[in-house]
Amino acid sequence: MSSTASRNVILVAALLGVLLATLITTYGLPMLLAPELYVLAKFTFIKKTFANDWGTVGTDYGLTALMFTPAIYMLTRVPQSRFRDRSASLLLFYALSVLVGAISHQNFDTVSSMNTPTFRIMWSVCVGSVTAAGGYIGSIGSALAHMSNRSPRQRFKVVQVPRWWWVSYAIILTLMVFCGFFSMERPAADIFLAGITQTPPTVYLFLCLMSNDWGVGMEVFTAQIVLGVGAFLNAPLLPLYGILVRMGLSLGTVNTILHFWLAAAWGSQAYGCLVFSRHIELFEANLLGDQKKMLLEVPVKKNGKGGKNGTAKKEMKNEAEETRKSTRSRTRSTSTAKSKSRSNSRSRSKSKSKA
């Protein structure tokens, strides 16, 4: 088996293992925190547990604008790069989730309306956008790993997970959402299950983010910290949801509080991604500059007598000098050959004229 085939087998096995661990955590952890809130419904609802107040709807629309604005800014004002495209896509999926959520909260206000195919499709898009966003979180980490692993500023090495791995991860989980395996009696609980699936890609992104100092300046250092913190800022929402519901607060109040927290988390991620996207060209320039510097400063191995032959820079100069000498020699040889050819031609011409 070739090395590429072996690597792919390992990656597929890792994908299945991570998916299994993710699903165990997704279904197990909420049951430990608030089992009464996570009762499987598969889009068959008996009672109405879906908020329709303007606190919920308004904050959903606000989150849509908060995510849509930096995404469009990146796509129109920031130079194209792998990191920029994936970051903008992540924010657009966030925006899609809350936009569809707002429309759903605004229009499905009875149990009968919640049991329709339309609600199922709408809410599956809302929740599925969250699981799909996890794939983009991981692929952003892969983009960082691609740069970090080539940089001498690297703090530690991270595996560059291929994009297809994250695409597969996101597609499988999103299909499960559409099949109803994430559908609870309280639709809001679906979002928390989907959020748990973002844990593996978030951890990977954090490791890739911290694997390098990036060497650009204080703004990037700040963005690195903000993005790292913002990536995990969603985590407290899971226990907080159960606490707020048990306090007896209305669904609308609970949603509004959680949405403000979500704005801080997603806003931090948007800021970090935007700053990094703007500095990608500097990262690449620094990377190339550092590589050239390393090439010129790497010491050459000692020769047989124990003395040093010099640095790689001297070797490069010597090679260039030898190349120039060789070129001059070839030029002289060519000139000599041409001169001899002319002399022979003249001699033959004279012989013919005498004859």
Rank of each mutant, 00 (worst) to 15 (best):
A5P: 01
S151V: 00
R330F: 13
I10D: 12
G141A: 06
R82Q: 12
W266V: 11
L20H: 03
T25K: 00
L193V: 10
M210T: 08
V177C: 06
A312S: 15
S124H: 02
P152L: 09
A263S: 13
G58M: 08
G267L: 07
R82N: 13
G28F: 05
P162G: 01
H146N: 09
L23N: 04
N8M: 10
V300E: 11
S353I: 11
S87P: 01
K352I: 11
V158G: 01
V130T: 06
A143Q: 02
T222N: 12
T110W: 06
N255W: 03
S89A: 15
S345C: 07
P201M: 06
S129T: 01
N318D: 15
A270L: 03
K352D: 10
M31N: 15
Y241F: 15
T327L: 15
V127P: 00
T49G: 07
G289P: 03
F119H: 11
L40R: 13
E319D: 14
W266M: 13
G58F: 05
T64Q: 04
F182V: 03
D190F: 01
S6V: 14
R150V: 02
L15I: 05
S81Y: 06
K313A: 15
L296F: 08
S168K: 00
N234V: 10
A51G: 10
L296Y: 05
H105A: 04
M210C: 12
V177A: 06
N309A: 15
W214C: 03
C208N: 10
N115H: 10
E322F: 11
S113H: 08
R84S: 04
